[in-house]
Every structure is written in structure tokens, then in C-alpha cells.
């Protein structure tokens, strides 16, 4: 049966728009069920704020099942909060106790400008995918799906990286605001598969260079892996770096051949 937490002290980042300097605002949550999710706790807070004729706290969320990658909160300095491999929306209040102070902030990274309060703009991620995070196969001409057998171990490894939900916790957790884990997860997914071979080096070069345009550089802190709700392994970054080095050579060779 559910228990109730009492008297939570919330410190929440409020910022009216991208140019506002922003500040912390204090709120007390007198009581909340430990069965409630973290975001449901914020829903309750917001209902209360509307009741007091105030502006509710803006935050991004949608599926509340840990799969869409929309939710994005820094909770007590940790991206997605204290529970390992759990997105903010899957975090439940049973992880907290009565009287706790909880500091809630948006993702902080120069590539993710704040839109309002806790909501940020992550479209730089889309730019990385648009630059090469795909396999160029137009609709219509695909051969039978079982024509190319893929060893189970390869399909599984590709799936491990393909699970990235594009939330940006890796960037928010990184002291440099680097997007290497996100970018490498997509590169690993596609570069491991037979279907991804044709564009392997072109893809890697384009994605890495687009990433560098928007994001900071990786200095191997490993904070990204610890923050990732999908447990994407930092090994994918090594794979990306290797393919990137090769791409410099291979892509030039291909160009000179044309």
C-alpha cells in the first residue's frame, strides 16, 4: 500500500525565455504518495500553482514510459535523477523521503538553449541525424528481408546501441557538453549492420563533423554513460573514433577514384 512523503522542499529553476537570466524558486510540497511518479509530483505542484493564479512550471514530457526521450530534468545535479538507467518520467517518489530538498533544473549545455523554465531546445540532435544518421534506401526497391542473414550477436549489438532515446542526458551530464555518446550510439547501430556498410565512412565523417559544430569535445570523463537511461556503453565512442579516423583516409580515396 502506498505511503505518503511529507514536506518536500523543491528548488525549481524558473526562466521566462531564452534571454531571461533565470532564478531558483522555492516551493513546499506538503504531501505526496510514494506511488506517484516524479512528474506526477510536478503535475500536483502545477495544479496548485494554477489554483493560486500563478504560472505553472514548464517542463517537457510525453510518453511517461521512458521511451520517447522527451523528459529531461536535472534532479539534485544528476541528469534524470538518482535512479540508475531510469528516465525522469520513470522515477518514482519512493526514491525520496519526507523532508528532502530536491533541486530541479533544466539540461544545461550551450547546444541546448533554454526555451522556458525546464524546457530546452535539443534540435541540434536532429541536425546530427540529418547529416548522416540513416541508410539511404528509398521506399520500394528493398530485397526480401531474409536475403541477408544477420548473426544474432550482430543484430543484438546493433539493437543495444539503437535503443538510445535521444534524451540528451549524456550531454547534460558531460562537463564539456559533448554529444559523443548520442552520436556514437547511432553510428554503432548503423555501422554494425550489413545494410549500413555502403555509407559507413561517409556517415561517420559527416555525423562527427556536424556534432563538432554544435557540441563540446569529449575528454573521456564517462559521465555520459552513468547518466544514460538506456545504458548505452561508452565503448561505442571508441568504435566511432576508430571509424572516424579510417573515414578520413577511405573517403578521400573514394573521392579521388570518382
Amino acid at each position: 500500500m502506498s505511503n505518503h512523503l511529507k514536506n518536500l522542499k523543491l528548488k525549481i529553476w524558473r526562466q521566462s525565455g531564452p534571454t531571461d537570466k533565470g532564478h531558483f524558486e522555492d516551493h513546499i510540497m506538503p504531501e505526496i504518495s510514494d506511488e506517484a511518479s516524479f512528474l506526477e509530483m510536478l503535475d500536483v505542484l502545477n495544479e496548485g500553482l494554477i489554483g493560486e493564479n500563478k504560472l505553472p512550471v514548464v517542463f517537457d514530457h510525453d510518453c511517461r514510459e521512458g521511451i520517447c526521450g522527451t523528459c529531461s530534468l536535472m534532479i539534485n545535479g544528476q541528469a534524470h535523477g538518482p535512479e540508475r538507467s531510469t528516465a525522469t518520467c520513470q522515477l518514482h517518489m519512493r526514491k525520496f523521503k519526507s523532508g528532502d530538498e530536491i533541486v530541479i533544473e533544466p539540461w544545461r549545455a550551450s547546444a541546448f538553449p533554454i526555451i522556458k523554465d525546464l524546457m530546452v531546445d535539443r534540435s541540434a540532435f536532429d541536425r546530427i541525424i540529418e547529416s548522416g544518421g540513416f541508410i539511404s534506401a528509398n521506399t520500394g526497391g528493398a530485397p526480401d528481408a531474409n536475403l541477408i542473414p544477420i548473426p544474432k550477436s550482430v543484430a543484438d549489438a546493433a539493437m543495444d546501441s539503437a535503443q538510445c532515446i535521444g534524451c540528451g542526458a549524456c550531454v547534460a551530464a558531460c562537463p564539456n557538453g559533448a554529444a559523443n555518446l548520442f552520436t556514437a550510439a547511432k553510428i554503432a547501430h548503423l555501422n554494425l549492420l550489413p545494410q549500413g556498410q555502403a555509407e559507413r565512412f561517409k556517415r561517420t565523417e559527416a555525423m562527427v563533423e556536424t556534432m563538432d559544430e554544435y557540441f563540446g569535445s569529449c575528454t573521456n570523463h564517462g559521465e555520459c554513460e552513468a547518466a544514460c537511461p538506456k545504458e548505452i556503453s561508452i565503448d561505442v565512442i571508441a568504435l566511432m573514433n576508430k571509424d572516424y579516423r579510417k573515414s578520413k583516409f577511405k573517403n578521400r580515396k573514394e573521392i579521388s577514384r570518382n
Partner: peptide, 11 residues
């Protein structure tokens, strides 16, 4: 079509 897009279906 989805396999050609690189969807890692179970094998």
C-alpha cells in the same frame, strides 16, 4: 523496407 533501413529486428 524496414530491414533495408537498418531496423534491428530480433533474429
Amino acid at each position: 523496407q524496414m530491414v533495408s533501413q537498418g531496423v534491428p529486428f530480433a533474429r
